[in-house]
């Protein structure tokens, strides 16, 4: 275990599914050769098959502390990188006549293929967005699977990084990560993954996905910082819980579960007898503790509705944008960045 641990909390009640986080990450980190199909930050509609396709059923991780066999997703499963007629539309003077479209083989899957489909029947259909990054796990399956000790978990902040000089592209990490958050760069022949924007964190700047999020969804900070949002939401209020805790990797990304609007009955009246998002579904994602977290959240919401105050909801609302970053709130424009 590292001395300290950076972490994130994603409030699923606020995520717009706008993909600003996804694009912020893409522009910053995955634009080089061999990275075309990579999305270190993803946002998928739940219920849904996710990215890569069916990752929740891909094995890996630990069961009662014992490593489990995992599957390797294909590029297709990740959604691949579609080729577009950019040249034609942007550079050949056909901006008015040609539509931007996929050229060559037409895709049958993509990184966000089942967006907004969700589940349930009108008027009780439901869905929510699930943003994901590498969880920078406390018990990282990727690190423990690598025979070359090419993956390190940093002492000072618990960020999990791949040493590309030691990596030989064996992809045992990719097989072992139950969240399928490792990508293979077939040009550099090494595995690559979310780096929690460590060069930014080292300068006191929150990761790009968090800073760019217009929904104020993504809280950042050190887990042990009692003045920061992570400790408050995870430890104090116990309203944020990890995704698939049964995978056994002890993730350091936590989620505030979604409270859906109420259901309607056959007569069109509000029916509070059962939730719109089935409890079983949320339990299948977050384990049984999700019901406690939802109860805590609903109780605080009832409190404020009755005119009371809730420090917990104040934290979640994030009136002050910078309060979300646990002190990692330095303006990146004040730093002179160099690329080595």
């Amino acid at each position: 275990m590292s001395k300290r641990q950076v972490a994130m909390v994603f409030d699923l009640n606020k995520c717009l599914g706008c993909q600003t986080c996804t694009i912020a990450c893409k522009r910053l980190w995955t634009r080089e050769e061999g990275m075309d199909y990579m999305w270190w930050a993803t946002v998928n509609t739940q219920p849904g098959r996710g990215t890569p396709r069916d990752w929740e059923q891909s094995g890996g991780g630990f069961k009662d502390g014992v490593a489990q066999a995992g599957k390797l997703p294909t590029r297709q499963d990740f959604g691949d990188a579609w080729k577009f007629n950019h040249e034609e539309v942007f550079f050949e003077g056909k901006g008015q006549s040609a539509h931007l479209q996929v050229v060559g083989e037409q895709p049958e899957w993509g990184p966000n293929w089942d967006e907004d489909q969700g589940a349930g029947e009108y008027p009780n259909a439901y869905y929510f967005y699930l943003p994901r990054i590498c969880n920078h796990c406390t018990h990282p399956a990727c690190l423990e699977a690598c025979p070359r000790k090419a993956i390190v978990k940093r002492e000072e902040d618990g960020i999990v990084l791949i040493d590309e000089d030691r990596c030989r592209g064996y992809r045992f990490c990719m097989e072992a990560c139950p969240y399928k958050k490792i990508y293979f760069n077939h040009v550099k022949k090494v595995s690559q993954k979310c780096i929690f924007c460590f060069p930014r964190v080292e300068q006191g700047v929150a990761p790009a996905c968090a800073r760019m999020c217009p929904g104020r969804v993504r809280f950042v900070g050190y887990k042990d910082d009692q003045n920061g949002p992570i400790w408050k939401l995870v430890e104090k209020y116990k309203v944020a819980i990890p995704l698939h805790p049964e995978f056994g990797t002890e993730p350091n990304v936590f989620y505030v579960p979604p409270v859906a609007p109420p259901r309607y009955d056959a007569e069109g009246n509000i029916d509070e007898s059962k939730p719109r998002i089935p409890d079983e579904y949320l339990v299948s994602l977050f384990g049984p503790k999700v019901l406690d977290a939802l109860a805590i959240l609903k109780a605080e919401m009832a409190k404020t509705r009755a005119g009371g105050k809730s420090e917990m909801l104040d934290v979640l609302i994030a009136y002050q944008w910078k309060s979300m970053f646990g002190g990692l709130d330095r303006d990146p424009a004040t730093i002179e960045w160099t690329k080595s």
Binding site: G60, Q68, A69, A141, E144, P147
Partner: peptide
């Protein structure tokens, strides 16, 4: 003799 538990599990 595979060096990590994950590899042993995957190849069992």
């Amino acid at each position: 003799l595979q060096p990590t538990p994950a590899i042993r599990a995957a190849w069992a």
